[in-house]
Nucleic acid binder design. Structure first.
Lengths: 358, 358
DNA sequence: ATATAAGTTGGGAGCGCTCCCAGAAAATAG
DNA sequence: CTATTTTCTGGGAGCGCTCCCAACTTATAT
């Protein structure tokens, strides 16, 4: 931490000072600090003792200047928090996963959050201009993200996405979940429970996760030879109120099940159904996505697709640091497993309970 | 952003390169970039044009090395996200408020989140050793925070707390809300509605906000000459499940109202009351704290104390940057206003409606 | 016209580190 | 005991910037 010198403050110690105290040279101290070989045990111990004693920490700016490394990664969250976080736990959990790894690897984490009123171009150029990061974790995507990541590729800046990139390319590393398959399985589950008029409230479709979940929905209907009706597909933008509105809109087409691309929207959908007295799962079955803590306690508890959010962040960060330190140069695309968590809202519990009891 | 040189990469441009292209000296380019006087308009324009054209951004490490300024602030969140964020929107909103200001002031934001399994001492020493920040916003407090902030004072590192500091001192700047008065008013409101057996589920008591709200609760009872009973005070730790447990525990003492130090715990309390068929507000009135978006939709909607979370972050950051840039050297302690948001859970609505109708 | 002041501009020094090379010390071989 | 290799150590150079001072240019006063 830069101590704000008030003039009388003694200058912060530097390598040379430590060298003097230990009776060696600057270079030797540098070797000890960086754990380099070619230092005798005796010298090393002596230097270490001095470092410990005075609590010396090398000046990161000087080090950065010569090494061109910062030991800092950036985390980019496009769209403003306010919009994304409403009641949610996706980003906090992701950040925790990232923080856990940066801690162990001794990296710092620079957080970039798009300001409420800021346009995307300005936001990304701010990030591009800050040269204090060795690489980036890109934690959310919008349609505006494409030129940004293209620029990153041009600049050869290491980065990892926490979602499938919005580009047809195999040159970008990412960590995600198989949204397509997860959605397909979830919808197949609804079909297996006898539902035939299955609608979907999608996640935001500027987002790859949202798109892939919709594709999985379509695929499942197709698998079972069921028609895909456009009026049965409404955008829920990963948010609660749009989910509420979407649900009301869908009701006129009398679905008997809805696959919802985010739990946040599912909460909104439940609001609408409760308000109108539509019974879940009797009249309409619901499946959400994310497994937010709160959906365990809704009435009825929500069946949902659980995804390992913290792990996504952690693995993306590990991958990024490997790239930065050139332990791995190959592009990697990692899909983590999801899990369909069956609760009451899809109707499986209602049916299975009596059977189990008989 | 440090472009990962692959050997063939042309070296990043520096001041000297720009100077050469513009036909001036390094110093002049520096003056232009830092908006210093003593550069003729003609020269300035010429240099600016070159900078624009090649997209030059000065090397922050070199600049830091000489200025001892990083234009980066740190944000410290003690305790792990997982615990704090569960469904919540407090920290995301705070971060958004901070990010809004750092953006406008052209600062970057280094986020420090205590790792799940990390002890406090290690966490704080990591922060202290990172010398890449000009100052800190300390966004949450535990009992372990005290030595840390004492150290910051010693080191003369600028910092601002987003809560009353856990020390009796007037040397620490902070931005908060008047938790004491807000809680006192909330409880007074319950009393004015005729409640006489008022319990409280506190926020975490290692936290100043939690402590002050409890003190406000006590003060209100005292104001009205009502007894303070220890069994009517249970810790809810700002979280849902402890709120649930606390509510169940309190029921044996038959309170007719509960002031709850966080909405998160209030949600837990509602869970308990709903489960047991206790009617809110008929049997028990509730008031929460925070005004989380979700408490607008509970059954019944929750009366709560709204606090300007984003503003707290924004003002703390503004204050911090003022300190860093030495525009303000005096300690400032800012209390932002809260607002009692009356919904149905406190009973005020039920009573007033019929009257209004008559 | 010259003396003086004010506005510009350039280059040296130095921030604190790492990297490299040369030289000293120690270890091993002949 | 000397020649050679290996291990260890010290200091110069330089990363890219800002700060300072000196020098030059132009404006203003005399």
């Amino acid at each position: 931490m830069s101590v704000d010198g008030n003039g009388s403050n003694p200058r912060t110690l530097n390598l040379e000072d430590i060298a003097e105290k230990a009776g060696v040279s600057r270079s030797t101290v540098s070797r000890v600090i960086n754990n380099e070989p070619h230092v005798s045990k005796k010298t090393r111990d002596k230097v270490m003792a001095v470092i410990q004693q005075v609590g010396f920490v090398p000046n990161p700016a000087a080090r950065m200047l010569v090494t061109q490394r910062t030991r800092t990664i950036g985390v980019v969250i496009s769209q403003s928090f306010g919009a994304i976080f409403e009641d949610s736990f996706y980003f906090p959990t992701l950040l925790q996963g990232i923080a856990d790894v940066t801690h162990v690897q001794d990296y710092a984490m620079l957080l970039w959050v798009q300001e409420s009123s800021e346009d995307a171009e300005r936001f990304y150029s701010r990030i591009l201009q800050n040269r204090l990061m060795d690489g980036l974790v890109i934690a959310s995507t919008t349609d505006k993200t494409i030129p940004f990541i293209q620029r990153l590729v041009e600049l050869q800046t290491p980065f990892v996405m926490v979602e499938r990139p919005p580009l047809h390319t195999d040159r970008i590393s990412y960590v995600g979940v198989d949204n397509y398959q997860a959605a397909r399985d979830a919808v197949a589950h609804l079909i297996s429970l006898g539902r035939r008029r299955i609608a979907t409230i999608t996640g935001s479709l500027v987002n790859m996760d949202g798109q892939d979940r919709l594709a999985g929905y379509r695929a499942a209907l197709h698998d079972f030879g069921m028609p895909i009706q456009n009026e049965m597909i409404v955008d829920g933008y990963f948010r609660r109120t749009p989910g509420y509105i979407a649900m009301k809109q869908l009701l006129q087409y009398q679905p008997d099940a809805v696959f919802i691309g985010s739990d946040q929207s599912a909460l909104g959908a439940l609001d609408a159904l409760n308000e109108l007295g539509v019974r879940v799962p009797d009249d309409i079955a619901l499946i959400g996505f994310d497994d937010l803590p709160s959906v365990r306690r809704t009435t009825p508890p929500l069946t949902t697709v659980r995804q390992p959010i913290g792990d996504k962040g952690a693995q993306a960060t590990t991958l990024l640091i490997d790239m930065i330190e050139e332990r791995s140069t190959s592009v990697r695309q990692i899909l983590l497993p999801t899990q369909l968590v069956i609760r009451s809202s899809c109707g499986a519990m209602l049916r299975s309970r009596p059977e189990a009891a008989s």
